[in-house]
Design a protein around this nucleic acid. Structure first.
Lengths: 262, 262
DNA sequence: CGATCTGTTGATATCCTTCAATTTTGGTGG
DNA sequence: CCACCAAAATTGAAGGATATCAACAGATCG
């Protein structure tokens, strides 16, 4: 079993405070927002390509993914959403979704009214910049996926996605050392990595033989994370898990007293 | 030769006003920012992986690209930057770049001080939301690239990237119907699409034989854009070239008189 | 006007896919 | 708790798309 986070802090607050220290005022706002009010069973569509985006929401519990379905029925999974991730923070600016989002496990969401998002920039500048950072993280993950799909072979792609998921789970306190819950079928892995399920099986089997990992009962353990990182040329820098640069933090220390800060 | 844009509006203003009507106040600010003050020759690095990001800048003239170099020297190009595109709008929030940016042609940049970006959210809410939209566009393009690399064959990838570039050039007034300047070598196309230069040659040759396109002297003409779009399953919706949803525009009509608007 | 980068073509190799059959797992109801 | 069913995982064999290697032709630029 995976350890639960030590602190009762909600996942979004845990994530954002890594980037920039938040004020009591900020925590209060996050506490108010990050409250699950929508529930989905596993395997349900949360938002659908071509339809208007639902309200912005925070993934409070569970795992989801963004995907596109092609004309011939094939599917490409673009990102995975973990607790604390925001969904459609941007897409509330468009009239219709260019991709779909679906749940992988049972999922709890907290919907955020659009006005709150827009007001945030004015009333909670720290949260606002931290959300900006969070969306930059997501962009960096998309770029890394492009590198993996464009230039890495099947083994490296698999090693890479597993390393990324372990690191992301660690960042939100959902990893027990090198061990995480991984509620993904091999078909879903294949649709993420641009491979076939059959080939994913083969490569995973060979990794098991090489004592690189254990993957059973929806639990993943990386036995030799260094060798896997090497196979994948994985460098966690792109996840930008560190804090904001000094000058950004300084700017927001002032901003607390900024005339338009409240 | 490609026609120049009819209006003297700077590329960034042209791009943002598609999304939301701007005020005289906004245009003034953009006019002030969008002024080239840095010049690069073709093939130079503008910002380098592992180093601190340079200041945020607008690409005023020319074409650039984001890329990563792997340990074995292979390269993956992640995005192309066209006039009016912002570079490192987000990455000013991090300590070091996770990828590099280089010029493809001679390039003119307008650097924007970080404080200006941060102040923008408060003083120019319309520009701010339009920049937000612009970064959402970029994210959508990254996702589309993932779909292309993960699930499309070589011919479809090539057709897709050419369609995308034609549409993006149209959006900034740099396309003459189906014809654009395309200062890309086949090696660069290959590094963008996860292919080898040799294979790009073969596919392009076959497209020429099929009278789908003309590509010579760094000029691309799509002879049969419908058939190419069909090969690529290209749907321009992901480029989100339309205007903001009505409610967003209404919100910012009010915001002009908003107490914290200035 | 030679040097270098870019594009082209052919032959061969490889990684991954496709197809098909079988086993294992997980969930459900009796 | 077990029987049963559907979904997921596994394995083998064969085929196909793209890579690799190599040689040459064409463009571009000082």
């Amino acid at each position: 079993m995976i350890k639960l986070p030590e602190r009762p802090r909600k996942p979004l607050a845990r994530k954002l405070e890594r980037f920039i220290p938040l004020t009591a005022h900020d925590y209060e706002a996050l506490e108010r927002l990050d409250r699950a009010d929508q529930h989905f069973k596993a395997g349900q569509d949360i938002s659908v390509e071509g339809k208007p985006p639902p309200s912005v929401f925070i993934l409070v519990e569970g795992m989801a993914f963004r995907y596109r379905t092609l004309a011939d029925g094939r599917r490409q999974i673009m990102t995975f959403l973990l607790p604390g991730d925001l969904c459609d923070l941007h897409s509330f600016l468009v009239k219709k979704m260019d991709h779909s989002v679906a749940s992988l496990t049972p999922v709890h969401l907290a919907a955020i009214p659009r006005e709150e998002i827009l007001e945030m920039g004015i009333r909670y500048p720290r949260i606002s910049v931290a959300l900006w950072w969070s969306s930059m993280q997501e962009e960096a993950m998309l770029r890394e996926r492009i590198v993996a799909l464009g230039r890495r072979n099947a083994a490296a792609r698999i090693a890479y996605i597993l390393c990324e998921l372990v690191w992301r789970n660690r960042a939100i306190g959902r990893a027990d050392h090198n061990c995480i819950d991984l509620p993904l079928t091999q078909t879903e892995l294949a649709d993420t990595l641009g491979l076939t399920p059959v080939h994913v099986t083969r490569v995973l089997q060979s990794m098991r033989r090489d004592k690189l990992l254990i993957l059973e009962h929806r639990q993943l353990t990386l036995l030799d994370i260094d060798r896997l990182a090497c196979v994948a040329q994985f460098n966690k820098d792109y996840l930008h898990l560190g804090a904001a640069p000094e000058e950004i933090r300084r700017y927001f220390d002032q901003a607390t007293n900024h005339p338009s800060g409240y």
